[in-house]
Design a protein around this nucleic acid. Structure first.
Lengths: 175, 175
DNA sequence: TTTACTGTACCGTCTGGACGGTATATCTCC
DNA sequence: GGAGATATACCGTCCAGACGGTACAGTAAA
């Protein structure tokens, strides 16, 4: 374990997200989060005074990760559209995990989580519109990305989905 | 209240779904479901011996509703594709509610819910492929539908989304 | 001395579920 | 036809355990 020495705070957020993704918010109890991060419950509550602060901390980190992702998307070698679609299927990255966790929380009627996701989506949309020069197409691509994400996180994944989408987009751009 | 006399069983399932959709599975406690259905907790447990049986009952009803929906889609006057897209945004129907509730449960690592949804999606896909004669396009349309659903249930809805999709599809069919 | 924890003990509330009871309708045997 | 048995559809209470959170004494390192 000579890794990059992840801070306890980050390990707690990692554990929180992983539990939410794996078992839903029900499974992400304070005890479970502390145990998964190999920290005592007292230790968890030292960093995050309540479950709500844990959520807040997670969303804050997501926003930072999101800004970086939009940057990467903007300068992706194979183009923004392909970058967006490719990263819409869960690759298991930290960012994917944070995104799925936030979506789960958003569905529980948490306006802060919905807001964070909406802001992120706006960032992606801007880049998609710039690169396609077409609002309708940009929105449609974003919906396809959402669909890929949804399927992935609901156990409905289809390995060939991305190829089908690419085929259709190729036909469109041939116009 | 001269209505069609919904059975207690159905009212319990209605309440269960409504609570899941509104507040996530956390909010759908036995007490809350019983109260919402205006039945005592004992009464609930008479019809569904455990929370698991409540889930089972819900999925069973969803399967029946799903079969009917595929029938309707098959013979929709404006075509199957438009029917599918239009019913992918939450109209507040019983079927929509059941579908959203099932998706929530599926995300909690419940293989039975994932299976029920996957079967349903297969039914829709068959019809989409028949009507488009194109597997890639059918899959892509299905992804767009999933995206519409996801956005709707995550508080990210965009009123014009459907119009943008229609515009893109029109361009495609012009080929 | 401050920071970053560990560990244990505890509290009030909520949760799933068990259980005993009740009202009413239907069926059974004489 | 009347007495009793049985089934159906519930009600309301109780309990053990889990949960979020508090409190606090101790520790090891910088």
């Amino acid at each position: 374990m000579a890794g990059p020495e992840r801070s306890t705070r980050d390990r707690l957020l990692d554990a929180f997200e992983t539990l939410i993704v794996g078992t839903g918010t029900r499974g992400a109890t304070l005890d479970a989060v502390a145990a998964a991060a190999e920290v005592s419950k007292g230790g968890l509550l030292y960093h995050f005074g309540s479950k709500d602060e844990l959520v807040e901390g997670m969303l804050e980190r997501l926003r930072r990760q999101g800004e970086q992702d939009v940057e990467k998307m903007r300068s992706a070698p194979n183009g923004a559209v392909d970058f967006y679609l490719e990263t819409s299927v869960d690759s298991g990255s930290d960012f994917d995990r944070a995104l799925i966790a936030a979506a789960r929380i958003a569905q529980e009627n948490e306006p802060r989580a919905s807001k964070a996701l909406a802001d992120l989506r706006e960032g992606w949309f801007e880049v998609l519109r710039e690169h396609t020069g077409d609002e309708s197409l940009a929105r449609t691509i974003q919906l396809i990305g959402d669909g890929l994400y949804f399927d992935d996180t609901t156990g409905l994944a289809d390995a060939n989905a991305l190829d089908h989408v690419r085929a259709v987009l190729r036909r469109l751009s041939a116009l």
